[in-house]
Simulated scan of single mutants.
Amino acid sequence: MTPALRIGATGFGLIAVCYGFARFAFGLFLPQIRSDLGLSASLAGVISGGAFAAYCVAIIVSARCSERFGARIVAVAAAAVATAGLVGIAVCTSPVWLAVFVILAGTSTGLASPPLAEAVSYAVAPARRDLTNTIINAGTSAGVALSGPFALGLGEQWRLVFMIFAATAAALGVASYLALPARGSKNGRIDGLGMPPLHANLLRLVAASFLMGAASTALWSFGGEIAQARLDWSTRLTGMLWIAIGAAGILGAAAGWLVARLGINTVHRLFLVALVASIGMTGLAFTTPTLTLVGGALFGAAYVMLTGVYLVWGTTTLPDRPGTGLMAGFLTIAVGQTAGAPLFGVLMSQLSLQAAVLVFAGLGVTPGLFWFRAVTD
């Protein structure tokens, strides 16, 4: 098995578990969790925002540790943290403990991405790196899509579902230990581990990814709530929305291929339009079951494609420090999500769901104001 295939397959699985199960499945099962534990919409938004905040801290730590200690140990740590957080969610009995374990599970996502970028840079030929990275990134969609059938079949037994997710995370920890190189792109050296110079390209990346991250929380954190409010869907039926989001998101694996042919800026703006359309189709009052599922599919494809764009944007800007280049975009996506989730919850509680959806659809347009330029500008 070639390094690209071995690392790509293992990374795809680890990202599926950490993002699809440990981070985004909370939004799918939120209505049933709220019913069982007595959560308000505002508190649910704060918990979601806390998980995104934990991601922000973790991805900074992970980028530095991946450069210093290598890819394998950090990836295994990500799987271990995901396992612990998912077990905790499954057994918690109060909103306080739920918050603790949702935040712990969310930490695993920040830990997972940088070591995989380091592993790709260290072991995969340059011509295959963008494609391998974006295939790994598309694992998010596989995890989201796989969580949907669990909601359809075991929607009310969310504790059992999270225990199954935990067992899967543990298995991916073993796979990461066996498949990933011990070293990262810097071969274990610790020189130059500070933040990179504030290149104009990075500043534009930070602005764009922050705004996209904030807009995306409309569905990632409140997709289940929206489907319940608009269509009176149960957690089981909402599983169909998650399947649509995840299945279409697999298209995001083509981000590296599309960027190579159309350019970062064209792909960026095309899929921002798709993101805005998806929020409107799913969340506005005129939605129907068909529109909701189509909007969910559009959202999945747009979100994973956009994160792939930001991945290539960052690693192209910092080719010698791929973990840090990835961190620049992914960290600020999560910062945007940290701000966006509580804001959406407050708007929904204090104004209306319609107002919250309109504000966040408008927010999705704004990243297009920022563009990628050659690293030499």
Rank of each mutant, 00 (worst) to 15 (best):
I60D: 10
S48F: 01
A229R: 14
V87H: 00
F165R: 08
V174E: 01
A25W: 05
A63K: 02
D130W: 06
S221T: 15
N137L: 15
G295Q: 07
L219D: 04
F286I: 15
A208M: 09
A166V: 04
T93L: 10
L251F: 06
A63V: 09
A215P: 08
A77E: 08
A167H: 05
L343P: 03
P31M: 15
W97E: 09
F26S: 04
G139P: 02
A356S: 12
L272Q: 02
A302W: 01
G110S: 05
I226C: 10
R34P: 13
N265L: 12
A166N: 03
S48T: 12
Y310S: 13
L241Y: 02
V74C: 00
S352E: 06
T107R: 08
L180M: 06
H268F: 00
T140N: 14
A58P: 00
T266P: 06
A374S: 14
V206Y: 02
G148N: 07
L37Y: 03
R373E: 15
L258W: 07
V365I: 15
Y122H: 12
L343S: 14
A80D: 04
I89C: 07
A170P: 01
V100W: 00
F21T: 13
G173R: 10
Q228G: 13
W257F: 14
T132H: 02
M281L: 15
F210G: 12
A63S: 08
A355R: 04
G148R: 07
R72S: 00
T324D: 13
V276C: 05
I333G: 07
W257S: 11
V335F: 08
L219F: 06
T83R: 04
G308I: 02
